[in-house]
Design a protein around this nucleic acid. Sequence first.
DNA 1: CGGAGCCCCTGTAAGC
DNA 2: TGCTTACAGGGGCTCC
Length: 262
Amino acid sequence: MPELPEVETVVRSVAAHLAGRKILNARFTSRFVTPGNRVRLAERFAGRRIESVHRRGKFIVIALDRGTLTIHLGMTGKLLVEGEADQHTHGVFTLDRGLLLYHDPRQFGRIEFSEGPPARVAKLGPEPLEIGFEEFRARLRRKARIKALLLDQTFLAGLGNIYADECLFAAGIHPLAVASRLNAARAEKLYRAIRGILTHAIQLGGSSISDYVNAQGERGWFQMEHRVYGREGEPCVHCGKPVRKMLVAQRGTHYCAQCQRR
DNA sequence: CGGAGCCCCTGTAAGC
DNA sequence: TGCTTACAGGGGCTCC
C-alpha cells in the first residue's frame, strides 16, 4: 500500500538511475493502468529526456524535456530498475542506459502523460511535511470525521489508510472525532504525530505489509513500528485493551477505544 | 458539504 | 481437499 513514505522511498531509490536518461521507447499492456490509446501514449515518451523525479502526495512526477510523466502506484504498483517483465508488468521503459519496469498485479495504478502540470496533481492538498501548523489548524475547520479527512487527498496529500490510523493513535484521537471540534492542543498533537510518523517511516524505507519494495527490490521496515494497523485483537501498547477495528469511510480502521478519545 | 455505496482489479485467506 | 466467498484498499464516481 504505497502511501507518502513508500512513494518517497521509491522516488529516492529511482532518482539517480533516471537522472539525465533518455527514454528510447515505451510499451504498455494494461487498459486499466494506461487507459486509452496505449501505442499513442508510448509515442509521447519515445525520445524524451528525463530532467527530474519528484514526489507530490502519492504521485511520482517525472519532468521530461517536453511534457510530464506521472505515475501513481495504486495499491500494488512497483517501479523497478532491474529484473524481467512478467505477466504483471504493464509498463516497460527502455532507457539509453538500463530500463524502468512498472509492475502492478491489481492494476489500480496509473501511468499518464501531460503537456503541462498534471491535472490530478494540481487538485492535491498541501504536503503534510511542508504545511505549517496554523494552516493545518485552519484546514481542520470541517464537519467531517477526522479519519475521512486524513484520507482525503485534497485535505492533505499523501496519507493513506495505514498512516492515518497510526497518526490518530499517536495523537490519541478517535477516528470518528469531528475535525472542527478538535481544540488547539489536540490539533497540534495530530500535526506533530503526522510529521513524526511520516519522517520516521521515510527513514525506515516505508512499510512492507505484503509486497511493497523500493526500486531496487528492497523492503521497508516501518511495519515493525505499527501500533494499531493490522493489530486487531492484540493488546494496545499503552493500555493493554484489545485493538479494535471498524469501518470508517469504507476503510478498515484500527484504533484503541480506551486511548483514543472523541 | 458529507457520507454511503459501488466500481475498477487480483492474490490471499478464510469459510463451508 | 477443493470450491466459493470475503477481504485488502487508492481513487473515482453517483446518489442522497
